[in-house]
Design a protein around this nucleic acid. Sequence first.
DNA 1: TTGTAAGCGTTATCAT
DNA 2: ATGATAACGCTTACAA
Lengths: 346, 346
Amino acid sequence: LESVTIKDIAKALNLSTSTVSRALRDSYEINPETKKLVLAYAERVNYRPNPIALSLRENKSRSIGVLVPEIANNYFSQAINGIESVAYNRGYHVVIFQSHESYQREVVNVEHIVARKIDGLLISLSSETIDITHLHQIHEKGYPIVLFDRVHDQIETFKVVADNFEGAFKATEHLILTGRRKIAHLTSLPDVSIAKERLLGYKEALKKHKIPYNESLIRYCKFAVGEVESMVDDLLNQEPDIDAFFTGSDRIAVGCLETLKLRNISIPEDVSLIGFSNLRVLDLLSPPLSSIFQPAFEIGQMAAELLLDWLEQKHPVVQFKTVKLPTEMIIRASSNYQANEELLGV
Amino acid sequence: LESVTIKDIAKALNLSTSTVSRALRDSYEINPETKKLVLAYAERVNYRPNPIALSLRENKSRSIGVLVPEIANNYFSQAINGIESVAYNRGYHVVIFQSHESYQREVVNVEHIVARKIDGLLISLSSETIDITHLHQIHEKGYPIVLFDRVHDQIETFKVVADNFEGAFKATEHLILTGRRKIAHLTSLPDVSIAKERLLGYKEALKKHKIPYNESLIRYCKFAVGEVESMVDDLLNQEPDIDAFFTGSDRIAVGCLETLKLRNISIPEDVSLIGFSNLRVLDLLSPPLSSIFQPAFEIGQMAAELLLDWLEQKHPVVQFKTVKLPTEMIIRASSNYQANEELLGV
DNA sequence: TTGTAAGCGTTATCAT
DNA sequence: ATGATAACGCTTACAA
């Protein structure tokens, strides 16, 4: 699909390319007459500057890469939505990559992103990722990286996360305050940042309420189908008197509910399952599923803002920071459920 | 972030850039010795060809654009997943755009995509889109476009869709066979292709079973929050004796269920609400929500395959076709529900 | 077998 | 106020 170039305009108007270029950029050193002429002609032939030529010249592409474990995941698609909204307004393109929770694919994609001259990277780590030299290598050379959601201790750059500790603390405490004592925690792989923080929040809540921590109540999983099922089965076998579940994502929550349903186990009471989740449908379940809402969209927006500010700022000196956005606890109780107000401290 | 160029290699090895270039591309006219030397050095300094320079030269970017109404929509994120999987394997990049169901934004994005030299476009039309001259203009000039899901009659190009007629027919017939007679149909805006096809399927099923078509049972909506609620209310006011709902998407289905719950109306029986949806959670509802499953991932894959084949083929002569993928009816009934086997024809 | 030079579209520098 | 030229990184006639 060939298009009009500056050269074409120059030829048509008997001018040099440099004059045309300057006229188009509204340079002061161009005769108003000529300017008008060029602009009018450019308009008429629908001239559009070739972004690739610009990229080559300026050594940047005005596009940012987003590398997430899975696009088809409610949380990440919300985050991407936030990212796209910011990028769009600031004239950047969003190029999407998936790691499919594979460390190998993450590494390959990161290399690829840099090689493709994508200006910067927004990344949420795969659940397999422990070593992050692939990020260090490029980060040290000044390549802009912003981590979001699943971040990592060992790199000093911008990070945007939900307050997972606080969310987990609130969730666990809520379960405790409604009378639960044996609270299972189903979460992602132990090396994932969000899993670590949530476990800390869970422990802290137990500690505050003087409930001993029992490691066998904690289960880790990737996001493989059927994985949650066997995990729940195993858990119920080993710890039959569990009285609540605290889950680490909507997928785990749903998998957990599915399994309980298959096994004909009903959730003891309305508030005995609570998890990190943004799914609206949870409201429709009976008993409805309470949840810790993560501001995925806003996290995406914030991450994109930080990256773009970084890209557009002239001086390489940056003060890195971690932005922590609050979660929101949404208690959904069926009408026949009466919370213990004393325990809840209402 | 500066990187090694062919020029750097040439300088280092005292060769010309063309020799290096040829050596890297394994040209027959290069001395094996030299070749080895160049390759080894390139390897050592981690040379990566600059894709932007290549793009400028070849006038293509090895990236494809995806323009969907909303990323954060289960259906589209599954489709994008399919697209990404194919593109990744074939060395293409996926650049994401959203129209947010706005015709204006769709037009702007399409212009942008072409101007950015993105090689081809995968698009699912916004619900506002009636006129498609923005597509015609570029399609006529040979710009590769593949429509998926929400397609359009008035353009002759590749299209990939689910068999919406068939799906709607099956859904409606299922409701009829389980005893429903007054079946409401909540769907997207009337100009959207999928809405049209589904309405036809719905009508056909009624016709087959000699049930008169009643236009006031049909309601159209965009995807605005709260829109479904007032639509359902209005519907229930005007037609209080509705005995089933057939919905056009998971969002509408969920909105519908939410409203019914708010109004304290229980779904008459297990199979009285059925809709196009891919949500796993529907299984967990009580009564569980039956659905027409659309192969969103496969639709994305297929669309991407067609586009990339098109891009890579030398001759511009193409035989356009519309690929129609079957839907699957998933009947989810609670254990205490007994289907009328006679009516079902089992 | 290797080197030179032109060109992809644009802008910046240096003339004029 | 305008034009010629070089440069961004790469490939490919065309020369040698």
